[in-house]
């Protein structure tokens, strides 16, 4: 099973890469057909990716979300899922084009991690862990999409009026609303992640919140996005500032995910 997963993973990476190239070609050549092809390829990659995760789960005999490799590939999967949903729902292929390199970067990061299957320590053997990590994947994926949307928003002013991109990107009001949809999806799932994490920590360690660096940074991330929500409501704040905030939020997400493990020790050091 793990052998199958290994092969599938490589195919998934190549598929995402090909989808990314097609997306770039769509923008370079300005042909809508290419965007459709890229989207189909990305969706195919996503289905294979899902199979790879299932194989890993069967091979390891547990949820495949407990170490850096597994979480990184699941993160790429979550980002792919949320970006597909947003691309289709808002008919917004340019979003797919901007998200593709981020997905590829994250799956590339996964490829660099050790794929060894290790037995779980007792504290990690909990159903709450499943909820905790799977909600985190959706939250991170949604925040990834809002990051990409912020980048598009901030670049929008520089685009030639009536140009190809200008016509394929919603106006700023709609961009802001779509970004709000992705941030709110992310914040809802981050709240769920923190809540299930707290319930799990209480059962495993006897304390539902202990200011471990990863907990603290997930709270900081949560606060940043809460501020984004309020700043967005307040009049006088234009979309630009909100977009910058959403981008900063994703930097916090990445710090919580990678930076904390590397720089700050704590009980989360295994994932």
């Amino acid at each position: 099973m793990l052998q199958v997963e290994n092969t599938l993973f490589t195919i998934v990476m190549l598929t995402y890469f090909a989808a990314m190239i097609l997306y770039f070609a769509f923008i370079a050549v300005k042909r809508d057909g290419l965007a459709k092809a890229a989207l189909i390829l990305q969706a195919a990659g996503f289905i294979l990716h899902t199979e790879a995760l299932v194989c890993r789960g069967i091979g390891a005999g547990r949820l495949p979300m407990t170490n850096q490799y597994e979480f990184a590939t699941a993160f790429a999967w979550g980002l792919c899922l949320v970006s597909l949903i947003f691309v289709v729902r808002f008919k917004f292929p340019v979003l797919g084009a901007f998200a593709a390199p981020v997905i590829f970067l994250i799956i590339g990061y996964a490829a660099m991690q050790s794929r060894e299957v290790k037995a779980l320590m007792p504290a990690l053997r909990s159903n709450w862990l499943g909820f905790h990590v799977s909600t985190a994947i959706i939250a991170y994926g949604a925040f990834g999409v809002s990051f990409v949307l912020s980048v598009i928003f901030l670049m929008r002013d520089r685009m030639k009026a009536q140009g190809f991109l200008d016509q394929h990107i919603p106006n700023k009001e709609k961009l802001d609303l779509i970004s709000y949809r992705s941030v709110s999806l992310g914040l809802l799932f981050l709240t769920f992640t923190i809540l299930t994490g707290a319930i799990w920590a209480e059962r495993a360690w006897g304390s539902y919140w202990s200011w471990d660096p990863k907990e603290t940074w997930s709270l900081v991330t949560w606060i940043i996005y809460a501020m984004y929500l309020h700043l967005r409501i307040r009049r006088g704040w234009n979309g630009r500032a909100a977009a910058i905030f959403a981008a900063v939020g994703f930097v916090c997400v990445m710090f919580t995910y990678i930076g904390v493990n590397v720089l700050l020790p704590g009980v989360h050091s295994y994932a």
Binding site: W211, T216, W217, L219, V220, I223, I224, M227, V260
Partner: peptide
């Protein structure tokens, strides 16, 4: 904002 700053400094 103050809370976010305090938490990140403390961590």
């Amino acid at each position: 904002a103050v809370l976010a700053l305090a938490c990140s400094a403390a961590s």
